[in-house]
Amino acid sequence: MSTLQFIMDNLNEVLYLSWEHIWIVGIALLIATPIGVVLGIVITKHEQFASRVLNGANILMTIPSLALFGLMLPILSMVDMGLGKVPAIIALVLYSQLPIIRNTYTAIKNVPPALVDAARGMGMSKWKLLRELEIPLAIPLIIAGLRTAAVMNIGVAAIATYIGAGGLGVYIQQGIARVYPEMIMSGAILVSLLAIVVDGGMALLERVATPEGIKVQRKLSR
């Protein structure tokens, strides 16, 4: 209950830090999405790069976040951006690549070959094919990738507090430093809550963005 009390007493700060947290994750996702989706699509058309790109994204993901911040520090220090929001956002963008690229790649690959064949045989250009068929069919899975990335990034952003990015991680970090359990709990609960809400929101988006015909197909094949 004292955690709740803490939140109520510091409502303004709580709202500010939450907003900061959402902002970091949101900006990162906005940057990561076009990069990941385009890369994912490109490697379906140039299969020879597929395994290299996917492996690269996989390696990025395996680097622990604190280590990644540490690795970026000397490089970004050269342009005086070693600390703060910039390295945090860059890290989130990098982490997002695997789920986004992988899902995009898989989704486009999953479009039945007969459909692609029919489309090409009727004289659709590669670009039209993407726009009219491949992307609409891939959308649900691509958004599922964004959803994974977003939820994961909410967690990583909490750690980015250590390089001065702000966000709800501040409560966890300072709470630990000051041995202030209510503060730690507030940070932890708010981050979790944020993750749950975003997860739900993305699930909704996934449903909304699924083409009507695909929904009908799913319903009937059940």
Binding site: A114, L115, L137
Partner: peptide
């Protein structure tokens, strides 16, 4: 062009 798998676009 008409194919066996029909290939109608489900979307």
């Amino acid at each position: 062009y008409v194919i066996q798998a029909i290939g109608l676009f489900p979307n």
